[in-house]
């Protein structure tokens, strides 16, 4: 077990290192490089810029600069936003919660709805339900998130008036119910693709297990069908789903980009698009690095969970 996790940990660290290299390279490739934030300041002369570059150590060898930059990255100094000079990590942190709420709710929807649909589809294979949800999943996967978001707002907010059209909560009214009410629409939109993916993988994973010899053994013991399905089929079918869940993190992050924009949800996705609009490179770069770290952490968590759940790996 420990050798497996050690290997994955080292792989993750290498990945993080590569991400940091790319982040550094991008920072220096942006128009004007790290100095661009001052280049447009009125009254800034070329001499001023050269002096600034010297002060900031930009004329030293790149490897040295990289090490310094990396050191700052590790100590949490990710630079300052061009827009309001607040620290990048602080800007990201203030938006992280909203995105995580959305991602977690969407994941819960995917696991519960997609999981249920996948399990029932596998148990009642080729039934009307199975065929119906198979087509449903295909449709869901081919709908653009942006368009689906607009449809949800149009139908549930504009036409039916059931859901607020966006934003995390109206000013001055911050009860939990109101918050959840606002969460429904965007979570549904963000969760759609993941739910569809989850249901397909769940179904095929269940079908893989359902014909295993040990499931027949369980039936031969005379156990009830419910115990056979839950304890013997589902328990094993969930193992590959842990990996799938880890791989869903990037899908959710890119989905959040669109969803948050459509629903004016104050999360990292909207921050990203806003920052690109303002050419706020430190924030853009910070977000890229941060999401890369999130993805890597997601995969690492999935690996750890897998080890815990599968005795064949745990007890190697």
């Amino acid at each position: 077990m420990s050798s497996f996790l050690t290997r994955r940990l080292i792989q993750s660290l290498i990945l993080l290192w590569i991400v940091s290299m790319i982040g550094f390279a991008l920072l220096h490739l942006t128009p004007g490089g790290p100095l661009s934030q001052f280049a447009n300041t009125p009254g800034m002369s070329d001499e001023d810029l050269t002096r600034l570059a010297e002060q900031m150590g930009l004329n030293r060898p790149l490897p040295v600069q990289y090490l310094e930059w990396f050191g700052r990255l590790l100590t949490g100094d990710w630079g300052r936003s061009y827009r309001d000079q607040s620290p990048v990590l602080y800007v990201i942190g203030s938006r992280l919660g909203a995105t995580l709420q959305l991602m977690i709710t969407a994941t819960l929807i995917a696991v519960i709805v997609g999981g249920f649909v996948g399990v029932v589809g596998a148990v009642r294979r080729y039934s009307f339900f199975d065929q119906f949800v198979t087509i449903g999943a295909m449709v869901a996967l081919s709908i653009p998130t942006f368009w689906f978001g607009l449809v949800v707002i149009y139908v549930f907010s504009v036409k039916l008036g059931w859901l607020p059209p966006g934003n995390i909560s109206p000013v001055g009214n911050e009860s939990f119910i109101v918050f959840v009410h606002h969460l429904i629409g965007p979570s549904m939109v963000l969760g759609l693709v993941t739910t569809a993916i989850w249901s397909r993988f769940m179904r095929s994973s269940m079908l893989d297990v359902i014909n295993q010899d040990y499931v027949r053994t369980a039936r031969a013991k005379g156990l009830s069908e419910r115990i056979v399905l839950v304890r013997h089929v589902l328990r094993n079918a969930l193992l590959p789903m842990i990996t799938i869940a880890g791989l869903e993190v990037p899908t959710l992050l890119s989905g959040a980009l669109v969803t948050e924009t459509v629903f004016t949800w104050p999360g990292m996705g909207r921050l990203f698009l806003d920052s690109i609009g303002y050419r706020d490179y430190p924030v853009v770069m910070g977000l890229l690095t941060f999401t890369a770290i999130l993805v890597i952490i997601g995969n690492l968590l999935a690996d750890i969970l897998y080890v815990v759940a599968d005795p064949r790996i745990r007890l190697q």
Binding site: Y214, A220, K221, L223, N236, A309, D310
Partner: peptide, 30 residues
Amino acid sequence: IRGTEIAMVFQEPMTSLNPVHTIGAQVAEG
């Protein structure tokens, strides 16, 4: 009847036990 009156030992010993449950649990669950 299964398990209590008729029981079966299957042809495939390597795959007929559930890999994620202990031997004890699998003997005891019936």
